[in-house]
C-alpha cells in the first residue's frame, strides 16, 4: 500500500499562491516513542571524592536547607551535576568546541575551551589550591561563613584561579545547582520534587483547563514528573 502523506495543489481564490491540501498520515509505528533517558541510580560516577566534597559543600551554601524545607543536598543536586557532567552536557557533545578563540563578550555565553566536565575538574582543583593556601584547608573543610565569603569573592571575579575563569565557574555552578533543584526528577535532581513543591509547580501535566479560571486558589493536584509520581504505584 502507498505510504506517507499525499499533497495536492489546488488554486485558492483571490490569491496567486496556491493552497495545499495535505491528506494521509505522518509516518507512525506502533510502540514508537522517544523515551527520556533516566538518570542512573547509585553513587558518583564522574566526581572523585575530593570533587564530590567540594560540590556538596558549595551547593549546600547556594541553596541551603531552611525553615521552608530541604535545600540542594536534600534535592540530590550533587548527584544531578555528576550525571550531567558524565553525559552529553559534560562532554559538550552538541556544542561547537573549536576555534577561533576571540575575546568573548558577556552576551556570548559559555566561552571556554574546556568541556564543562574539564572545566569543573580544573576549577575545583584550583579552588582547593587557593583555599589551602589561604586557610590551610580545602573548601569543603571550611566553616559555613568562610565558605560563603569564598564564594562571594569567587562570584565577584576578584580571585585569580590557576588556568580557569573563577567568575565563569561560579556562574556555571550556580546555574547547574538551580537546574538540579528544579529539574524533572528523571534527570537525577529535584528528589521527591521538593523544588516543585516549594514553588507550587505542577510538573509535567497536560490538562490545565479546569483550573484556568480558579484564581487565587491553590492548585489541587500534586506535582508529577515525566516518570510519574509515587501514587501511580500501589
Amino acid at each position: 500500500m502507498p505510504e506517507g502523506p499525499t499533497h495536492s495543489t489546488v488554486p485558492t481564490p483571490g490569491t496567486a499562491v496556491p493552497g495545499r491540501v495535505v491528506a494521509g498520515s505522518e509516518p507512525w509505528q506502533p510502540g514508537a516513542a522517544a523515551p527520556e533517558i533516566a538518570s542512573s541510580a547509585g553513587g558518583y560516577v564522574f566526581f572523585k571524592p575530593a570533587e564530590a566534597a567540594f560540590v556538596e559543600a558549595a551547593v549546600a551554601r547556594l541553596i541551603p536547607a531552611d525553615e521552608l524545607g530541604g535545600g540542594a543536598i536534600e534535592a540530590d543536586v550533587p548527584l544531578f551535576i555528576d550525571r550531567q557532567l558524565n553525559g552529553d552536557f559534560g562532554n559538550a557533545t552538541r556544542w561547537y568546541m573549536q576555534g577561533p578563540w576571540g575575546e568573548p563578550t558577556k552576551t556570548q555565553g559559555y566561552q571556554t575551551r574546556l568541556t564543562p566536565a574539564q572545566f569543573y575538574r580544573a576549577a575545583i582543583q584550583a579552588i582547593d589550591a587557593v583555599s589551602t593556601r589561604m586557610h590551610g584547608q580545602a573548601f569543603a573543610a571550611l566553616n559555613g561563613d568562610r565558605q560563603d565569603d569564598f564564594l562571594r569573592v569567587l562570584e565577584s571575579g576578584a580571585i585569580a584561579l590557576d588556568g580557569v575563569d573563577g567568575q565563569a565557574f561560579f556562574g556555571l555552578l550556580l546555574q547547574n545547582t538551580i537546574e538540579g533543584f528544579f529539574c524533572d526528577p528523571v534527570h537525577g535532581g529535584n528528589k521527591d520534587m521538593i523544588g516543585w513543591k516549594l514553588i507550587g509547580f505542577p510538573g509535567a501535566r497536560y490538562e490545565q483547563r479546569f483550573f484556568l479560571k480558579a484564581f487565587n486558589q491553590p492548585f489541587p493536584l500534586p506535582p508529577v514528573g515525566i516518570a510519574g509520581r509515587r501514587e501511580w504505584s500501589r
Binding site: 491540501v21 494521509g24 504505584s233
Partner: peptide, 18 residues
C-alpha cells in the same frame, strides 16, 4: 476525515501493573 490522529505509546513509561 483526511487527518489522522495518533494515540501515543505508553509501554516505555508505564509498567504492566500501572
Amino acid at each position: 476525515r483526511p487527518t489522522a490522529f495518533t494515540m501515543p505509546a505508553y509501554a516505555w513509561k508505564l509498567s504492566d501493573r500501572q
